[in-house]
Simulated scan of single mutants.
Amino acid sequence: MKPRLIILSDLWGIEKSAWINDYTEILDSIFEIQYYDCCDLGQVDKLEYQENNLHNQFINGGIEVATKRLLELEKKRIDVLAFSIGGIIAWKAQLNGLKINTLYSISSTRLRYEKEKPKCNLSLYFGDKDNYKPTSEWFDRIELNPKIFKNKEHKLYTEIGCISEICDDIKTPYNNV
């Protein structure tokens, strides 16, 4: 039986996530994959489908709603691949009891506000040109060493070169299984 990997979208949800297919094509041979649209998890209204509107809804309760919903949906041990807002949802869900082996969090800039580290394996990825990534002081305080992609911005996770590198990292522990 394959291990489970859940994928948590960025704030755009399924509508702007065609790039997710690049991840699932690479990882499907190793994992049983479950995709979650974070907007659906967080009961975010997509009627006004603009970044500021979606972001504000997540900040004003959507993250908490999505975290609780994820805890209701996932009862068994899993790995998590999370993009942007999905990373903070997974982080908070683990702190509240979600059984995560490894959290792969890409461009999850809201982590910079967190003070407590989840008790699971953590792999964080950021672009060095992402203006909202956590500071080096935050990484030192939380005792994490992120992977920083040179000359990349927030949406690095949609670029095929970055996708390949991230997927290689995710596959590595399973290569000899």
Score class of each variant (00 low, 15 high):
I7K: 06
G97H: 07
Q43D: 13
E137H: 06
K155S: 14
K133W: 05
K99R: 09
K92N: 15
E74A: 01
T135F: 01
N52A: 14
E153H: 12
T135G: 06
L144E: 15
I88E: 12
Q34G: 01
T24K: 13
I33R: 13
D128A: 05
A90Y: 03
L71K: 12
K171G: 05
S108M: 00
W91P: 06
D168N: 08
R4Y: 03
N175Y: 11
Y49P: 07
E64Q: 14
Q57A: 09
K171H: 08
I85D: 00
S17Y: 05
E72M: 07
S164F: 05
D22E: 12
G61V: 09
K129I: 05
G62N: 00
G42T: 11
S105Q: 05
E72K: 14
I78M: 07
K133Y: 05
K92E: 15
E116Y: 00
K117L: 10
L8D: 06
F149R: 05
S9L: 00
Y36S: 05
K119H: 14
Y36L: 02
D168R: 03
I7D: 06
C120G: 10
E15M: 07
G97L: 04
I14G: 02
L71N: 15
A93C: 09
W19N: 08
N176L: 10
F83S: 03
A66N: 09
L8P: 11
L81R: 09
E64G: 08
A93P: 13
L122D: 10
I33C: 13
F31E: 03
Y174R: 02
D168H: 11
S123F: 02
D45W: 08
L47M: 11
N175A: 09
N21I: 07
P118S: 00
C120V: 06
D10Q: 07
G42Q: 02
G87A: 04
K150Q: 14
N151I: 04
N96I: 06
C167S: 15
I148S: 01
I7W: 08
N121F: 10
L103T: 10
T135Q: 00
D45I: 07
E159H: 13
K133F: 08
D22N: 14
N151V: 01
E51L: 07
E153M: 08
F126D: 00
L73S: 07
